[in-house]
Computed example of a mutant assay.
Amino acid sequence: MQELRQRFNTVGPAVYRFADEDKIVEREDLAELTARYRAVGRKVVFTNGCFDILHQGHVTYLEQARREGDCLVVGVNSDASVRALGKGDDRPVNHEQSRARILAALGCVDHVVIFGEETPQRLITTLMPEVLVKGGDWPVEKIVGAPEVLAAGGRVLSIPLVENYSTTSLIKKIRS
Rank of each mutant, 00 (worst) to 15 (best):
residue 99 R to W: 02
residue 99 R to E: 07
residue 160 P to Q: 03
residue 101 R to P: 00
residue 71 C to N: 04
residue 18 F to S: 13
residue 76 V to N: 02
residue 159 I to C: 05
residue 126 T to A: 15
residue 133 V to R: 05
residue 107 G to F: 02
residue 121 Q to G: 06
residue 123 L to P: 06
residue 67 R to M: 13
residue 143 I to V: 15
residue 45 V to K: 04
residue 33 L to M: 14
residue 29 D to N: 12
residue 70 D to I: 12
residue 80 A to L: 09
residue 40 V to G: 00
residue 152 A to E: 12
residue 31 A to I: 14
residue 30 L to A: 05
residue 41 G to K: 08
residue 121 Q to T: 10
residue 70 D to F: 12
residue 155 R to W: 00
residue 26 E to M: 11
residue 58 H to F: 05
residue 21 E to L: 10
residue 15 V to E: 13
residue 73 V to Y: 04
residue 43 K to N: 04
residue 47 T to Y: 03
residue 56 Q to Y: 13
residue 50 C to F: 01
residue 88 G to C: 10
residue 100 A to P: 12
residue 85 L to C: 04
residue 77 N to I: 04
residue 158 S to V: 05
residue 26 E to C: 09
residue 91 R to V: 07
residue 20 D to C: 11
residue 154 G to C: 03
residue 161 L to H: 02
residue 59 V to C: 09
residue 90 D to N: 14
residue 126 T to P: 00
residue 143 I to K: 06
residue 125 T to R: 15
residue 150 L to W: 01
residue 47 T to C: 12
residue 59 V to F: 03
residue 140 V to I: 15
residue 82 V to M: 06
residue 140 V to D: 10
residue 33 L to E: 14
residue 36 R to V: 08
residue 128 M to Q: 15
residue 28 E to D: 15
residue 114 I to G: 03
residue 89 D to S: 13
residue 66 R to I: 06
residue 17 R to P: 02
residue 108 C to E: 14
residue 141 E to I: 03
residue 48 N to H: 04
residue 34 T to H: 01
residue 75 G to Q: 05
residue 112 V to N: 06
residue 162 V to I: 13
residue 72 L to E: 10
residue 55 H to R: 07
residue 103 L to A: 08
residue 57 G to K: 10
residue 60 T to M: 05
residue 135 G to L: 10
residue 35 A to E: 14
residue 137 D to H: 11
residue 96 E to I: 01
residue 54 L to H: 08
residue 57 G to A: 09
residue 103 L to M: 07
residue 25 V to C: 12
residue 67 R to F: 00
residue 76 V to K: 01
residue 55 H to M: 09
residue 21 E to K: 11
residue 32 E to S: 13
residue 126 T to I: 02
residue 144 V to G: 09
residue 55 H to T: 10
residue 113 V to R: 01
residue 40 V to M: 12
residue 79 D to T: 07
residue 51 F to M: 08
residue 134 K to W: 05
residue 55 H to I: 08
residue 42 R to E: 15
residue 69 G to W: 07
residue 146 A to P: 01
residue 47 T to H: 04
residue 142 K to N: 13
residue 59 V to E: 05
residue 68 E to W: 00
residue 78 S to G: 08
residue 150 L to Y: 01
residue 29 D to I: 02
residue 49 G to C: 07
residue 161 L to K: 11
residue 29 D to W: 00
residue 149 V to E: 03
residue 46 F to C: 05
